[in-house]
Design a protein around this nucleic acid. Sequence first.
DNA 1: TAAAATGATCAGTAAAACTTACCACCTTAA
DNA 2: TTAAGGTGGTAAGTTTTACTGATCATTTTA
Lengths: 296, 296
Amino acid sequence: MLPDLKLAPMRYVLAILDAGGFHAAARQLHRSQPAISMAVRDLEERLGQPLFEKGGGKALLTPFGHWCVPRFRELVAHHDRVCRDALAIARQQHGRVDIAAVPSVASRLMPALLAGFLQRYPGIDISLQDGHSERVNDMVLKGEVELGITSLWLPDEALSFEALLHDDIGVICRDDHPLAQQKALHWRALKPYTLIRNGTSRLLEGSPAAELLTHSTLYISNMISLTAMLEAGIGVTTLPRLAFQEEHKRLRFIPLATPHLERQMGLLRRSGQSLSPAADAMYHYLMAQLGEDEKR
Amino acid sequence: MLPDLKLAPMRYVLAILDAGGFHAAARQLHRSQPAISMAVRDLEERLGQPLFEKGGGKALLTPFGHWCVPRFRELVAHHDRVCRDALAIARQQHGRVDIAAVPSVASRLMPALLAGFLQRYPGIDISLQDGHSERVNDMVLKGEVELGITSLWLPDEALSFEALLHDDIGVICRDDHPLAQQKALHWRALKPYTLIRNGTSRLLEGSPAAELLTHSTLYISNMISLTAMLEAGIGVTTLPRLAFQEEHKRLRFIPLATPHLERQMGLLRRSGQSLSPAADAMYHYLMAQLGEDEKR
DNA sequence: TAAAATGATCAGTAAAACTTACCACCTTAA
DNA sequence: TTAAGGTGGTAAGTTTTACTGATCATTTTA
């Protein structure tokens, strides 16, 4: 019923009009002139009506041709628009990535990383939101974001995790605290002091230092409240180094030497679901940037 | 720069989604399954990004595929719409004809003809306007209408005329007029009577009867005024038979036997300019209908 | 665990699109 | 007038593209 009209002959028709003749169109399209003639004739046969007047020496449209040409123009323009947009996205010149990151990464690492990414891929829109590790995990799993930066949580069938960097656990205390001058600590050195637990305290679980948690009576989830407590000298806490905000002048970070604890930070994505071109660019960019940092 | 993305592979992609798989799509499209696979792979290569997830057994879209598919849908739908409309016009299922006709034809012949045409081509819009022969000529020449029905005026390079029917010239008089009972007349029989000239009187020119015009002092262009004059018994006039309105009970039409005068009615169109499909249908319809009438 | 799906691959083939060479026609300029 | 330079159309042959049929590797279903 519908003879499948191809776009190329329509392009030829438009070129004939724009260039003002079959020969001129052929030159413009880098085709031979007979190719144009034959394609146009074929198109006319499919339509069942001529598009060009046959008699005169010049290329003039029939009334039917006059009706067709504007629609051909629109259709070809539509086609080109779709192609251009699709290619721009495929080539990562446009697009959008939604990322989630654990607060420490989001605030300490991402600003510099995203600045570099934006420079490299000026057309890509980025959305970054932070959340604790379970939330990041969940957002990736539910497809709310394509990429997550978090410490490895539960290994999951539906998620794939690529390690990026290690983040050492240490103790945070005020500069006048007895431990403040130490270079490294054994976990037992903490026993005499008040330990404030926080969201990252679970990183101690499964290690000898877990014993400390059982004696702790204070839990603060909010980082601002936590630093306020520490600055007030109420006690000490453990944090990954990245989560320690160096701008607090009176607080010190002392690495925990025994046991040596670290959290593994990495890129989380859904397995079995490939990334959008933009997210793919982000994925490889982060791997390259942070993998490099790791080597130093 | 722009790899020319063809519509067929886009159709394949859509069919894969609709049918739920490569095999099902192949069946639906009456193609072999490898044809689908290869076309999709080619499309993906042109875009530079896969559209379908490769791992799993099922046909699932990548995020990039999800972005592309709605645009492919729109584009394909646009293409089909243009094709369908163009074919409908080419096949004379839609379209528009503008016609002009001399008043006698417009009022006496066209109603029945157009009724038949409308029945045969229900989708075609028709515009009919009347005017005297020079005006019809002019409208065709200026492209205001595609077809004109008129008596041959000046043979013109830019116009082509196809004869349709002969229209005999006769005399119109009231039923109580001395000539009213005649079957046919010689022009000299009119000499004693008042001759009212009208727009068609020029048809007498170039014949012996032209002498009558020189003695006529009354010219009425409007047909309603003319019949009123005739019914009032003011005089007689000459008219082509078609222009004589038979519903005037007191008026008689007597053919002019010597000289036998007739106007040649025909279809006028621009030469060198082909007709729109709808006008072409009208052209051939009129030729067939009136040519047939002529034979009877 | 066999059977029946899925999609991918490869060689061969049929169809399309294109090129080269040539023709017929019209217009323009010497 | 003729010849040159333009128009587009035609025919044979070649390249490119699109497709089929047979076959394979996997995964899913029974």
